[in-house]
Computed example of a mutant assay.
Amino acid sequence: MAKGTENEQVRELQARLRQIGYFHRSPTAFYGALTAEAVTEFQRKRELPATGSVDETTWSRLVGMTRKPTENELRPRTTNELDTPDPRCMEGRVLCISKESRTLAWMIDGKVVSAMDVRFGSVNTPTREGTFKVDRKERTWTSTLYHSEMPYSMFFSRGQAVHYSADFAARGYNGGSHGCVNVRDKARLAQVFEQVRVGDKVVVHW
């Protein structure tokens, strides 16, 4: 396993690293920079080659120190920890959305006002990455393509929006969106919806 890998073994890797204090967020199944840093630190402490990638020796050592993760450890319902904000999020009014930590931070002038867990599109319908602007807001909306309810929608990229998802609230990360950024905390999103203005920046990044 190395940077760019995305599968269930990576999810298990992250859960095991979390058990012993090297990974401080909910497992995402994506091997990004944060996972590589955690692996590197684990390797250093055990005097293994600090490559940041997982070879057979590293995996065996980790498995020997940890237990098989439970379903709740693999897909916890607890709030994910925020990443260090992307530099593009540090000025102005921004919905700063991280695919690696699966979080949305509503930020004003570099300060986090509110944060929440989010879920993204599947492999076939990915959430687009980049810098966008909120082009419209809809307190109540039904998808014209998928006929699903999308309360508190903030559209930012050709039909993709940040919105509340009852499915995400019920099933967690066992499901996925059709490209939108799903939020499961309806009350928190409702508060942010009232604050966000059309024209505010949206940054979607790893």
Score class of each variant (00 low, 15 high):
129 E>Q: 15
34 L>G: 05
120 F>P: 14
203 V>N: 10
205 H>P: 07
167 D>A: 02
8 E>H: 02
146 Y>N: 14
71 E>K: 12
157 S>H: 08
21 G>E: 00
166 A>Y: 00
68 K>V: 13
24 H>M: 11
71 E>C: 03
104 L>A: 02
205 H>A: 07
78 T>C: 01
202 V>W: 11
28 T>M: 01
93 R>C: 13
10 V>L: 11
22 Y>L: 08
121 G>K: 09
81 E>C: 03
154 M>I: 03
81 E>L: 05
56 E>Y: 01
12 E>L: 04
192 V>A: 05
42 F>D: 00
62 L>F: 07
37 E>R: 12
178 H>S: 05
204 V>Y: 03
22 Y>G: 01
106 W>M: 05
198 V>Q: 13
145 L>V: 15
159 G>H: 09
189 L>G: 10
170 A>L: 08
119 R>M: 07
205 H>V: 08
165 S>H: 10
174 N>S: 09
152 Y>D: 07
51 T>G: 01
60 S>H: 04
12 E>T: 05
48 L>Q: 06
35 T>G: 10
122 S>C: 12
120 F>W: 14
28 T>L: 02
98 S>A: 08
44 R>D: 04
119 R>V: 03
34 L>H: 01
158 R>F: 13
51 T>M: 02
194 E>I: 03
163 H>Q: 14
174 N>W: 05
122 S>F: 13
192 V>T: 07
88 R>N: 09
52 G>A: 00
123 V>N: 12
161 A>V: 10
72 N>Q: 03
36 A>Y: 06
64 G>T: 00
188 R>G: 13
80 N>I: 01
99 K>A: 09
117 D>N: 15
91 E>T: 15
63 V>I: 13
19 Q>R: 00
205 H>L: 03
83 D>L: 03
1 M>R: 03
160 Q>M: 15
179 G>Y: 01
66 T>N: 02
184 R>V: 01
38 A>K: 02
29 A>R: 06
174 N>Q: 13
137 K>Q: 04
149 E>T: 12
94 V>N: 13
48 L>Y: 06
33 A>H: 08
63 V>P: 14
24 H>Q: 15
90 M>S: 15
32 G>V: 10
68 K>D: 14
60 S>Q: 13
150 M>R: 08
79 T>W: 03
32 G>M: 11
38 A>D: 00
183 V>Y: 09
25 R>C: 14
66 T>A: 04
49 P>T: 04
61 R>M: 12
197 R>E: 15
129 E>W: 11
71 E>G: 02
10 V>T: 08
186 K>Q: 09
75 R>T: 00
125 T>A: 15
165 S>N: 09
121 G>Y: 09
40 T>P: 04
47 E>R: 13
57 T>E: 14
26 S>D: 11
47 E>K: 15
